[in-house]
Design a binder for these strands. Structure first.
Lengths: 251, 251
DNA sequence: GTAGGAAGCGGACCAAAGTCCGCTCAGCGG
DNA sequence: CCGCTGAGCGGACTTTGGTCCGCTTCCTAC
C-alpha cells in the first residue's frame, strides 16, 4: 500500500478493452461467453447481487480470465451496457430531430437528457456499477456525452465556458442521483424529466429573453424520448463510435 | 446473497451514529481515539491509502470496535469531516451576507457553491470516501445543503420545482466530479468556481426578482418550511446541524 | 462493597475484488 | 504431421470492508 495521496481510481484506468482483431479463437469465445453470462446474471438478479465469481462460474471460465478480458467489475458492466449505449449514440448522431441533428440546441439537450433518463430507468443499477469511483469520467460513453453537450452549449452561447458547463449539467444525469431519486424517494420518471427540462431551459435561455416565460410543462417534450434501444444494425460488442481520445490498451 | 434486485447500498444505511449521551466511559474514550487516529492517518496518507485495520491498529482497538462505533468506512469519513462541516453550516445559517442570510438568493447560492468547492479543494478525497455508493444522499450534510438550496431556489422563483432543481444543482458539487476535474484534468479551482457562477446565473436568471420580500433573517426561514413535498421523511439528517460556538472555517 | 446484567470489546471469520504464476494448448512454420 | 512457443488459462492467493460471538468490564442497584 502506497503512502502518498493519489487519485482514487482503484486499479487499471478502465481501458474498456476493445475486441482486438488478432485475438485467439478460444479467447474470443471466452469473451463472448463471459459477456453473455454477465448480461444474463445482471439482468435476472440485479447488478449488485452478482459477484465476479458468479460470472466466471456461469461462463465456465476461471476468475482470472474474466479480469484479464475486462479488467474490472466496472469495465465488465460497461461492456454489457455497450449495446444499448451504441444504439443511443446512433440516435444522437444520426437520429431524427429532437434528439438527432436538426433541432435547436435547447431542444436537443432536453431530448438528450430525457433519453439518458430513459436509459437509466431501465439499467440504472448496471450503470451505477459501471460508474463506481471516478470510472464514469473515464468511460467512452461519458466522453461522447461530454462532447455532445459541450457542442450544444457552445452553439447556443459561444461565450460561456461550454466544456465545464457540460460537465456540471451531466452531473445531474449521474446514476447514483437517479437511483436515489427514483428508488429511495420514489419520484416518478416524468418528474425527473420535467426538472431536467427546467434546468436546460435555464442553462440555455430560450429565444424569449423577457423573464417570467413559463418554460415547459410536463408532457410537451417527452415525445422525444429515445425510440427504445431496439436492434442495432449488427455491431457485436464493438466499442462505441466516436470514442474519446483515451483508450490505453492494457499490457 | 440475495437473488433480487435491490437498492445498492452495501450494508447499514449509514446511520452516522451520534455521540449518544448515555455512552459508557470506555466507549467514549475509544470513539475519541478512533476519530483522532483516523483524522491523522487520513490527513497524512490520503483517505484511500488508509484501511480500516490501519485505523483500528493506530487507535489501539479491535476492528470490530471501529465498525461498531461508526458503522462503515463512509460513516467514519463523515465523522472525521463533521468538524469542518459544522463550521461551514454555521456560516451558511448565521454568517455574514454573501454566504449567510441577507444577500439575494443568487448571491447566496453562488457563495454557497464556492464555499463547497473550497472545502472540496481541501478534503476532496475524504469527502469522496464519505460519499461512496449512494451514501452521499443519506448523509446529514447533504440534507442541510439540499434544504438550503431548495429554499434559495424557491425564494428566487416560487414556480419552479425547487426540490429537484436543488438536487440537480448539488450534483455539480459532487466530490467525484471535483476530483476528476481538479486532479485528472488539472483545472484551476478558480475556473471551477467560475463555471459554478455561470450555472447559478442561469439557474436564477432575473437581475433582481420583485424585491417586495425583504431578505429573511437568520433564524426564521431556514427552519420554517419544507417538511412537505410529499416525500418520505428520509430519516438521517438528525445529528450534526448548527450548534457549536466555533464559527471558524479553519481546519 | 458486591453482584448482576448488559454494554462493549476484539479478533476470528467471511465475501468479494483483484493479482500472480506455472501449466496448457492454439496456431504456425517447417 | 510434428514440434515449438507464447498467448491464454485458471485457481490459489492477497487485501480489505464488514460481521459475529464469546469474553470482559463498566455501571447500577442493593
Amino acid at each position: 500500500m502506497a503512502t502518498q495521496p493519489q487519485w482514487p481510481i482503484t486499479s487499471s484506468q478502465l481501458p474498456l478493452i476493445e475486441p482486438d482483431g488478432g485475438e485467439r479463437a478460444d479467447a474470443a469465445r471466452n469473451r463472448a461467453r463471459i459477456l453473455a453470462s454477465a448480461a444474463q446474471l445482471f439482468g435476472e438478479r440485479g447488478a449488485d447481487c452478482v459477484s465476479m465469481d458468479d460470472v466466471a462460474d456461469a461462463a465456465g471460465v476461471g476468475k482470472g480470465t474474466v479480469f484479464r478480458r475486462f479488467g474490472s467489475r466496472a469495465a465488465l458492466a460497461q461492456a454489457v451496457l455497450s449495446e444499448h449505449e451504441r444504439a443511443f449514440q446512433e440516435h444522437i448522431i444520426r437520429g431524427d430531430p429532437p434528439l438527432g441533428p436538426g433541432a435547436a440546441p435547447r431542444e436537443r439537450l432536453t431530448a438528450f437528457g430525457e433519453g439518458v433518463l430513459d436509459q437509466l430507468d431501465r439499467h440504472a443499477m448496471l450503470v451505477a456499477a459501471a460508474e463506481v469511483g471516478g470510472a464514469r469520467f473515464l468511460s467512452a460513453p461519458y466522453g461522447v456525452y461530454r462532447l455532445h453537450v459541450t457542442l450544444l452549449l457552445r452553439e447556443a452561447d459561444p461565450d460561456c465556458d461550454a466544456e465545464l458547463l457540460a460537465e456540471l449539467l451531466l452531473a445531474a444525469l449521474g446514476a447514483d442521483l437517479f437511483l436515489y431519486l427514483r428508488h429511495m424517494r420514489s419520484l416518478p420518471l416524468e418528474r425527473l424529466k420535467s426538472s431536467w427540462r427546467q434546468l436546460v431551459c435555464r442553462a440555455i435561455p430560450g429565444a424569449v429573453p423577457p423573464a417570467s416565460a413559463e418554460p415547459m410543462r410536463p408532457g410537451d417534450a417527452d415525445k422525444a424520448a429515445l425510440p427504445a434501444a431496439g436492434e442495432p444494425p449488427l455491431a457485436a460488442a464493438g466499442e462505441p463510435p466516436l470514442a474519446a481520445g483515451d483508450a490505453s490498451p492494457q499490457p
